[in-house]
């Protein structure tokens, strides 16, 4: 049995789900692959819980029951304040899992955490998009120079292996990637169409059931979808800058717009587009005929159409459900372990 030490930074919805999924599935993984996934430290904005020999299943489940920002209360392992140096000194992690929230102005704290991890010889799995969007080349160069991996399949269509598939299409010239990349806004639009409520009401409902954040700016102003386009552009080797993505705010859509569209047999969708031929990228409110394949993708589903010089593919799956995203993060961890850690 090979022990793999994992440090988790960020303990919001995805962090909790990840810890829970690991606690429920790691015995199965151990039996199947001979790997023991040891979560040795988990940090949030206020503190960190450290256990050098790894938390057991019961401890991981109890940890996921903590209130927000209170890992420091996780007796006897919790500590006030996060000192990543101390965490690494004590636990010597093989893999760093970055699940902190995205900040598109600075990329912090994810950016510093990821660089620190790489410089201390840990592979990185991130669900935080901001560090990649702002510093993709730097992070990848740092990893490459040390023979380390950075995986991030949870960042785009988080519940699916879309990015894995896309990056494996190495012989294709990818001309166009277009789709519904943000679950929150798609849910809001679906609400507006199905229940004929206005934007505010639909947003409130999305917040109530936990599909939208208390501060929904990143979703409804298109930042999230733009960041995803940016990551896709890096993966296919035709990088664009997030600032060059033209964005429209979804909050402009009124109930009247929806009614007008419906009357004309159309559906309003919030569509992200990366056109590598014409070098344009946008996140726009568009009207699609009802029978358009994207028009039929409702609720929290995501969908992408990829056009290459050889073929056209369509990909549908859950966007950012916490359990699905946690599995994507876990899959990244496992693929690193199987390819890099054990192989060494």
């Amino acid at each position: 049995m090979r022990n793999v030490n994992v440090v988790v930074m960020g303990f919001g919805n995805v962090g909790r789900a990840f810890v829970k999924v690991v606690s429920l599935k790691r015995k199965m993984i151990a039996e199947k692959y001979g790997i023991n996934i040891n979560i040795v430290a988990v940090g949030d904005s206020k503190g960190v819980a450290i256990k050098k020999e790894g938390f057991d299943e019961y401890e991981l489940l109890k940890m996921s029951e903590l209130p927000r920002s209170s890992l420091h209360m996780f007796a006897p392992y919790g500590r006030q304040e996060v000192d990543i140096k101390e965490v690494y000194r004590e636990t010597e992690p093989h893999i760093h899992v970055e699940l902190t929230p995205a900040n598109y102005l600075t990329g912090e704290p994810g950016y510093s955490n990821i660089l620190f991890a790489l410089r201390n010889n840990a592979h990185v799995v991130t669900a935080n998009k901001a560090p990649l969007v702002l510093h993709y080349s730097e992070i990848m160069n740092e990893a490459r120079s040390r023979g380390l991996s950075v995986r991030f399949r949870a960042t785009v269509m988080g519940g699916t292996p879309f990015l894995e598939m896309l990056s494996s299409m190495k012989s294709h010239d990818i001309e166009r990637v277009e789709g519904i990349l943000n679950a929150t806004t798609n849910y809001i639009l679906t609400e507006m169409h199905e229940n004929l409520v206005d934007f505010e009401q639909a947003l409130k409902k999305a917040q109530a059931i936990g599909v939208a954040e208390a501060d929904p700016t990143l979703d409804i102003e298109g930042f999230d979808a733009a960041a995803k386009l940016c990551i896709i552009s890096h993966v296919i080797g035709k990088p664009i800058n997030m600032n060059s993505v033209y964005r429209e705010s979804l909050s402009k859509v009124t109930l009247k717009d929806v009614l007008d569209a419906v009357r004309q047999g159309q559906v309003i969708k919030y569509v992200a587009l990366l056109d590598t031929q014409n070098k344009v990228a946008s996140v726009k409110i568009v009207r699609l005929p009802k029978d358009n394949i994207l028009a039929q993708v409702g609720g929290v589903l995501n969908a992408v159409r990829v056009k290459t010089d050889a073929t056209e593919l369509f990909f549908v799956g859950k966007g950012g459900g916490r359990i699905e995203t946690a599995h994507s993060v876990f899959d990244d961890v496992l693929s690193i372990v199987l390819e890099k850690v054990i192989g060494k």
């Binding site: 409520v197 409130k204 409902k205 917040q207 109530a208 936990g210």
Partner: peptide
């Protein structure tokens, strides 16, 4: 936290 969440949900009642 749970009660705050409940309150947010209750606030969406139209």
């Amino acid at each position: 936290e749970e009660l705050e969440h409940l309150k947010r949900v209750a606030n969406t009642i139209s």
